Amino acid sequence: MADESKNRYLQYLQLVTGPLEEKKRWWQYKARIKHLPDNYRTAVEALERYLMHFGPADGAGAMAMYEDLADLFEQSAADRTPIRDIFGDDPVEFVEAFMANYPLGQYRTRERNRFTSAIDRAAEQDRTQ
């Protein structure tokens, strides 16, 4: 009976907070970033903020993106690649190209579809007036 209650609690917790495995992956990613040299960590944290607002993925897709980001910067730090050599002259161009490698998350896909449908309905009203 105790195992059944524990399983229900974990199911409820995951429903409210999201999958526990994704949270573990997130904290592993954050631990990796924490060990980067200061300048690389600063760049990753800035990129992370941008991705939080404009990134295409959520859930497992987002974690794959962040893990790839950690891989990139760990390797760049090991090779002592200058920050400008990673980002180029236009950091936004870099991050947009980086994001293009990942699928849209479910939330963003749903909202894009909702937005497109609303515009289609509004445009249809123009034609019928």
Rank of each mutant, 00 (worst) to 15 (best):
Asp3Ser: 10
Glu4His: 05
Lys6Trp: 06
Asn7His: 07
Arg8Ser: 13
Gln11Met: 12
Gln11Trp: 05
Leu15Cys: 02
Gly18Arg: 09
Gly18Leu: 08
Pro19Gly: 14
Pro19Cys: 12
Leu20Arg: 13
Leu20Ser: 12
Arg25Tyr: 08
Trp27Ile: 13
Trp27Met: 10
Gln28Ala: 12
Gln28Thr: 10
Tyr29Ser: 05
Tyr29Arg: 02
Arg32Leu: 15
Ile33Pro: 01
Lys34Phe: 10
Leu36Cys: 05
Leu36Tyr: 08
Asp38Arg: 10
Tyr40Ala: 11
Arg41Trp: 03
Arg41Val: 08
Val44Asn: 02
Val44Arg: 02
Glu45Ile: 11
Glu45Lys: 13
Ala46Phe: 08
Glu48Pro: 00
Glu48Ile: 03
Arg49Leu: 12
Arg49Val: 05
Arg49Lys: 13
Tyr50Cys: 02
Tyr50Met: 04
Leu51Lys: 02
His53Val: 04
Pro56Ser: 13
Ala57Leu: 02
Asp58Ala: 07
Gly59Lys: 08
Gly59Glu: 05
Gly61Met: 07
Ala62Gly: 06
Ala64Trp: 01
Ala64Tyr: 02
Tyr66Val: 01
Tyr66Gly: 00
Tyr66Met: 13
Asp68Ala: 14
Leu69Phe: 01
Leu69Ala: 02
Asp71Lys: 09
Leu72Lys: 04
Phe73Cys: 04
Glu74Val: 11
Glu74Arg: 03
Gln75Met: 12
Ser76Phe: 01
Ala77Ile: 08
Arg80Phe: 03
Pro82Asp: 08
Ile83Val: 05
Arg84Val: 12
Ile86Met: 03
Phe87Gly: 00
Gly88Met: 02
Val95Phe: 01
Val95Glu: 02
Glu96Pro: 00
Phe98Thr: 01
Ala100Ser: 14
Tyr102Trp: 10
Tyr102Thr: 02
Pro103Tyr: 03
Arg108Cys: 04
Arg110Asp: 12
Arg112Val: 02
Arg114Lys: 11
Phe115Ser: 06
Phe115Gly: 00
Thr116Arg: 10
Ser117Trp: 03
Ser117Val: 01
Ile119Phe: 08
Arg121Trp: 03
Glu124Val: 04
Arg127Gln: 13
Gln129Ala: 14
